[in-house]
Simulated scan of single mutants.
Amino acid sequence: MEQASLAFFQNFYTNVSLYVVAEPGAVLPDAQPVPVAVAVPEAAAPVAAPPLPPLAPPAAAVAVPAGPPPAPARPATPPAAPIPIPGKLPSLASLPLKAAPAPPPMTPPAAAPVVPAPPVAPVPAAAPPQRTAPPLTETPYSTLGSNPNGLVILVRMDAVRFQRLPKNVFLNKLLMAIRLIMEDVVLINVESHLPVALSTLRRKLAAKQVIGFGKNLLDVAVYKTQLYEPVLLVNDVAYLPAAEIELLEEDNSRKKLLWQAMQRMFLA
């Protein structure tokens, strides 16, 4: 058995039979085995084959072509993109060009529907302001005296005191200082907190000089005068405002201011 294994391997590696194993029962010529000499290179050392397992029956030999098989054709691959260098922006030349998409067609905006404006209601004309007080031409007053061309003296007091006014000592002395007497004047008592209208007095009186003892007595002189300062009003009417007669009777300083104003108005 060892001889048969050795003969098989030597034949497998060198394709030369070193030993011929005689089959059982076969008789060689001359009845003696003939050794076959095989040339063995001198430099080659005998290799001791390791013990091998029992051999399987040899398989059919597969025909192998003589040369190496041709390499299959590879599909053409595009050139590899250059490796980007860290910290360096890629070149625009290496970027693939892509066609910009066409912008969508511009559609004009739909016109907003025209909504008619609601009709504007006409604004009613502003009504004239309602007077909360009667006109100044209707301010009530009472009179004492009958000289239409005389001096007009305006006061505001109760009816009893007004009836006693022609006998007032202070008022009579004041008239004497300007060379007048009580019969030369017309006394008018304004019976309301509102002033009397000058136009109302002018319909009955033609006097050109008026003295007012008190505040808010004549409509055209309410905002244009100050105490003891004679002024010229409409229609060349001279007007002198003064304090109430009761205050003048007890205050000499006011009497002095009044006398100086009367000198400028009557004696200048």
Rank of each mutant, 00 (worst) to 15 (best):
A4E: 10
S5W: 08
L6N: 11
Q10R: 15
F12L: 15
N15D: 13
V16G: 04
S17K: 09
S17H: 08
V20I: 05
E23L: 14
E23T: 08
P24Y: 12
A31Q: 10
A31M: 08
Q32T: 04
A37G: 10
P46E: 09
V47G: 07
P50K: 07
P50E: 05
P54W: 04
P58V: 09
V62R: 10
V64F: 09
P70D: 11
A73Q: 13
R74M: 14
A76S: 12
A81H: 05
P82E: 09
I85Q: 08
I85S: 07
P86E: 07
P86C: 01
P90K: 07
P90V: 13
L92E: 14
L92W: 10
P96R: 14
L97H: 06
L97P: 01
A99Q: 06
A99P: 01
P104H: 00
P105D: 11
P105V: 14
P105G: 12
P105K: 13
P105A: 15
P105F: 07
V120R: 13
V120Y: 08
P122D: 10
P124E: 14
P128E: 12
P129R: 08
P135D: 12
S142H: 06
L144I: 13
L144T: 00
L144V: 01
G145K: 02
N147R: 11
G150L: 12
L151H: 03
L151Q: 01
I153W: 03
R156N: 07
M157Y: 03
D158W: 00
V160Q: 09
V160R: 14
R161P: 02
R161Y: 05
F162G: 05
R164Y: 07
N168L: 05
L171T: 01
N172P: 00
K173W: 04
L175A: 09
M176Y: 13
A177K: 13
A177H: 09
I178S: 09
I178Q: 11
R179F: 11
I181G: 14
D184F: 02
V185Q: 06
V190D: 05
E191N: 15
H193M: 09
V196D: 02
T200N: 09
T200K: 15
L201P: 05
R202G: 06
K204E: 09
A206K: 13
Q209T: 12
V210P: 03
I211T: 05
N216F: 10
A221M: 06
K224A: 15
T225N: 12
Q226N: 10
L227A: 12
E229I: 04
P230V: 01
L233R: 03
N235T: 03
D236T: 06
V237E: 00
Y239E: 07
A243T: 06
A243V: 03
A243Q: 08
A243C: 02
E244N: 13
L247C: 00
E250Y: 09
D251I: 07
R254G: 06
K255T: 02
K255H: 03
K256V: 12
L258W: 05
L258N: 03
L258T: 04
L267C: 10
